[in-house]
Amino acid sequence: MESPREHKNPIRYLPFYGCISTGLIYIAVGVVAILSMLRIKQGGADESSLLKYLNDYTWGKVVVWMILFGMLSYIVWRVYESIKDPYNYGSDLKGKARRAGIGLSSIADALIAFSAVVVLIGASDIQEDGRPEQQREMVGNMLQESWGSWVIILLGVIVSGTALVQFFYGITRGYRERMDIAHFNKEKRKLIYFFAYTGYLSRGIIIGIIGYFFIRAGLSKNQEYVVNTDKAFNFIGDHVGLLPFVLVAVGTICYGLFMFALGITYDVDNDPSGTHRSPETEKP
């Protein structure tokens, strides 16, 4: 008799497409950061800039469409996940908070999807060299309002909080309940954990820098403080050092590789059939 895990439910492919698309983006961002350091490429280690660069080529347009499809798939899955609760978080206050967090976590995917749309229709001021002109223009318009600086500060606090969540997620291996890897040997699991730890740490650092400069922009009422991923890398290289820059760039590539692993092993139904052990029962 066919087990639940063998049932070809189309919904189970949504996180696969989303994770693979996310993996492609961050592997490319990490590679571009290293190429920029080596002065082989002039900037562009940013999600939006990467999409803009790809859109200049016929094959690149296909990739942008694929990434857009993947992001939309992951957003749909996240909404489905928060409503259907396949991981049994429950309907108490804690459970609802976790499920709401799942839905809100799709904001980053939505921003990438939005960038893909505006790039495809040619209605953006996104720079291929990584300059955050579009973000700074948006913040500048908001700062003209009496409430603008407070909104920018709040946005910076939220982004900084997201960075802390990235650190926590990587350290506690909170992603394990979504991965069917208990049948993997010890070496494969350790490799996935390494990709996840270094990836989430690196993403947390980049996101934390972005959040910090949003707060500075709000406090100083100066949109020039706003940075994106590319300029966050520059900040590390200019003010922290070359080695940390390389480590974060490599960590960003590791994050992309982890997203590949997550997509391939994504356990969309928390294995109700009991065909493998839960992550909590795995041996490290």
Rank of each mutant, 00 (worst) to 15 (best):
V248K: 10
L164Q: 07
F233A: 12
F69H: 06
R277G: 15
F168R: 15
G23M: 01
N222D: 15
D92R: 01
S202R: 02
R216P: 06
I11G: 04
I206A: 03
S278Q: 14
Y175V: 15
G156Q: 00
P10V: 03
W65I: 13
I20V: 02
F184P: 11
Y200H: 11
G70L: 01
Y13N: 02
G95S: 03
D125F: 04
L243T: 15
F69K: 03
S160G: 08
I102E: 04
I25D: 04
S21H: 05
S82K: 09
H239W: 14
M66C: 12
L50Y: 02
A123K: 06
P272V: 15
F167Q: 02
S3I: 08
A33V: 00
W65V: 12
K186I: 12
P4T: 03
F214E: 02
S220K: 14
L35Y: 05
V159S: 08
I209V: 03
I236Q: 04
I253N: 01
K41F: 11
T198V: 12
M66R: 05
G148M: 07
H7D: 13
Q134D: 10
S115W: 10
D46S: 04
Y266R: 07
R178C: 08
G95N: 00
Q223A: 15
T265E: 09
W65D: 08
N234M: 14
F114D: 12
R39M: 14
G103C: 10
E133A: 11
V165M: 09
A113W: 02
W65Y: 15
G95P: 01
L93R: 14
P4D: 07
D129Y: 01
A196L: 11
Q135K: 14
G103F: 10
A45G: 05
I158Y: 06
R203Y: 06
S105E: 11
L154F: 13
P15A: 04
V151H: 02
S124C: 10
V159P: 08
Y53I: 05
N185F: 13
R277V: 13
A97R: 13
L50Q: 01
G199Y: 05
L93I: 15
I209G: 00
G140Y: 03
I215L: 06
R203E: 07
D267L: 13
L14G: 03
A110H: 06
K84H: 13
D109C: 10
F168V: 15
I192Q: 06
Y87L: 08
E6Y: 00
E137Y: 10
Y212D: 08
H7G: 08
R78F: 10
L155R: 02
V32Q: 02
Y26R: 00
G170R: 01
S105K: 09
L164I: 15
E282D: 15
R99T: 10
